[in-house]
Each structure stands twice: as structure tokens, then as C-alpha cells.
Amino acid sequence: MIKENKKTGHAKQVLPHREDLGGSMKTLYTLIVHSENIAGLLNQVTAVFTRRQINIESLNVSASSIKGIHKYTITAWCTEDEIKKVVKQIERKIDVLQANYFTDDEIYQHEIALYKLATPGFQANPVASKIIRRHAARVVEVNPTFCIVEKNGMSEEITSLYEELQQFGIVLQFVRSGRVAISTSCFERLNEYLNFREEKYNKEKEYARQ
């Protein structure tokens, strides 16, 4: 397989300079957003990144454990100052319940990846199957033309398996999911938030009645 190589023709890519309030170091942040399940909301969440021209590295949206609430896991490279503002702008959207950002050491994160390998090439390289076992990946489909390997793990592990298999030139297709993540904090922020909102509403109503 020919690896796509984009030659820009520029010797050096010049990145625009930005004046920041906080640090200017870029980090891969993981955002966890909870929202009501309403059409068009994903658009509003991603538009916050677009407005600031921040690339989304990965995005996963699915139903959360609470009925009617969706959970987004988004990763992006940016500075802490940028991510703070992004989180506030996302939370400002009416139907977003909560948005929080995390660094890798504050979450347990996982991705899943599928690798489609050419069976003849795979058979010709016995080391390849050792590599798959060493990576605790599993073969989920084998036929004379191709086999499919499935691996879940941290981002780097998935990349590293790809690179190792690719040195034999046998990877026909490769796909990885967006990151999913769970915070490792002891506080369940969403539940707290929902309880807080309900209590406050009841209190305000009680107050209004008096």
C-alpha cells in the first residue's frame, strides 16, 4: 500500500502566533460534554471549535447512562487558556448540561481499532502473529484474501500496533474509533449538577410561593 504523503512544497510550516492569557503550550485535552438529545446540538458544539479554528482530533457521541442525555468525548490540541474558553462557550449553549476538560492523567481512556491485513502477506511473516499476540489484539475474521484484527487500548498502543504491522506492508485498511473516556475523579459531576438544578428549582418555587 502506498502511504499517502502530502508534500506541501514548503520547507517549513509557519504557525500563526497567538497572544495568550495563559500558557502557550499545546496539550491534547479531552472534553466530556453532556447535553440533551436535541437535533442540531452537535453542530453547535463543533462550531465553538470552528470559530477559534481549533481542529478536533477525535469525536465520539453516544447515549449516556441517563435517558435522554447524550455524552460527547472530544479531543483537541490546544492551550489551557483556549480549552477553558472553549468549555465555557460550549456550556453556554442552552441545551448543554455540562462541559469539562481533562488531561490524560485525569481520565481512563480507550479507543478501538480494526486492521485489515492481506492474508498471504500475514502468513508469509510469522512475526506478525507474534506482534498481534504481544499487543493483546485478536483476530476476528480470517479468509483467504484478508483477515481482520481488532484491538482496543490507549491511543499510542493502537498507533504502535499499526506501525509494527505496516513494516511488513500488509495493512490493507485501518480504522480507529474516537476516544471514549471516563473521569477518574471520585465526584460524579453530572449527577451533582442535575441534583443541584432540581433542588434550586424547588427552592425558588417554594420561595416564590411564600
Binding site: 447535553s35 442552552i94 448543554v96 448540561l97 428549582y201
Partner: peptide, 9 residues
């Protein structure tokens, strides 16, 4: 008078 995702006050 209540939207759980938005606190106007």
C-alpha cells in the same frame, strides 16, 4: 419556567 440545562439566575 425551568430548563435543567440552563440556569438563568
Amino acid at each position: 419556567d425551568f430548563i435543567r440545562s440552563y440556569d438563568p439566575n
